Amino acid sequence: MNEFVDSHAHIYLNKFKEDLKDVLERSFEHGVNKIYMPNIDHTSVDDMMELENRYPTNCFSMMGLHPCSVKKGFEKELYIVEEWLGKRTFAAIGEIGTDLYWDKTFWSEQQEAFKVQVEWAKQYKLPIVIHCRESIDETIELVESLKTDELTGVFHCFSGNLEQARKITDMGFYLGFGGVATFKNGGLDTVIPHLGPEHMLLETDSPYLAPVPHRGKRNEPAYIPIVAKRIATLKEMPLNEVAAKTTSNALKLFSQNELL
């Protein structure tokens, strides 16, 4: 069986509360044995950590402040993130970034929170996991302004164009591909064929953005092979090669802090 990694899944959320054990069993049955969990804010930490404690060789926590949680008084949230980073090791700093989809009110605060957390990534030698909904060009510019040789990470849920993809990979960052890759009008059918598999990670962003044929339903890690098959088709590559390369990429990105 092919081995996969889900590089981005919020499986600690309430949408999984009733059947989490079944969700994880399905994940493992489909070869998805490692799941990386991005934090949102102080409200998600306990549930995320509890899940990691229950499945220490399968579920790995990140620590960060999601841009949609950057509001007035966000400094308090950042203090909690900083405190946690000083207590233990995490797989990455994430999910961090910018978001202009819902609300543009706190744009300057989002940029400040992102810059602070990138500096922590440099300090702790951790990769960053970047959210950039409706703000990809702005976020690329931010990363370019902060980039150093040791800074790396992934632009999660990538749905941009080829020029944007190349700017990201030229900086040494990965592109996270999920359900959008399977959408008829997702636009990635004209991008993925031109990208090397060495730049790709697989993700679900569970419980969001389920791939076709589950679109509109709750997403879960067991659907990772569906995304992998779509990429294999678009790139005219064997599925096992897509599985092997994306798994290798994920382990390389997160490995120095993997809790085994």
Rank of each mutant, 00 (worst) to 15 (best):
Met1Leu: 14
Glu3Tyr: 13
Glu3Trp: 07
His8Ala: 01
His10Lys: 02
His10Glu: 04
Asp19Gln: 10
Asp22His: 11
Ser27Gln: 13
Glu29Lys: 04
Gly31Arg: 04
Lys34Ser: 03
Ile35His: 00
Asn39Lys: 12
His42Ser: 10
Leu51Cys: 07
Tyr55Val: 00
Tyr55Lys: 02
Thr57Tyr: 08
Met63Ser: 07
Met63Gly: 02
Gly64Gln: 01
Leu65Ser: 01
Leu78Pro: 01
Leu85Ala: 06
Lys87Asn: 12
Ala91Ile: 02
Ala92Tyr: 06
Ile96Asp: 02
Lys104Cys: 05
Phe106Cys: 06
Phe114Ser: 03
Trp120Met: 13
Tyr124Arg: 10
Pro127Thr: 14
Cys132Tyr: 00
Arg133His: 10
Ser135Cys: 07
Ile136Ala: 11
Ile136Gly: 10
Val143Asp: 04
Leu146Pro: 05
Asp149Ile: 09
Glu150His: 10
Val154Trp: 01
Phe155Gln: 14
His156Gln: 10
Ala165His: 09
Ala165Lys: 13
Arg166Gln: 10
Phe177Met: 14
Gly178Glu: 07
Lys184Tyr: 11
Val191Ala: 13
Ile192Ala: 04
His194Ser: 15
Pro197Tyr: 15
Leu202Pro: 01
Ala210Met: 03
Pro211Gln: 13
Val212Ala: 06
Pro213Trp: 00
Pro213Thr: 01
Gly216Lys: 03
Lys217Ser: 11
Glu220Gly: 09
Pro225Leu: 15
Glu236Cys: 12
Met237Tyr: 02
Pro238Met: 14
Pro238Glu: 15
Leu239Phe: 08
Ala244Ile: 05
Thr246Met: 09
Thr247Met: 08
Ser248Glu: 11
Leu251Arg: 03
Leu253Glu: 06
Phe254Glu: 00
Ser255Gln: 15
Gln256Cys: 05
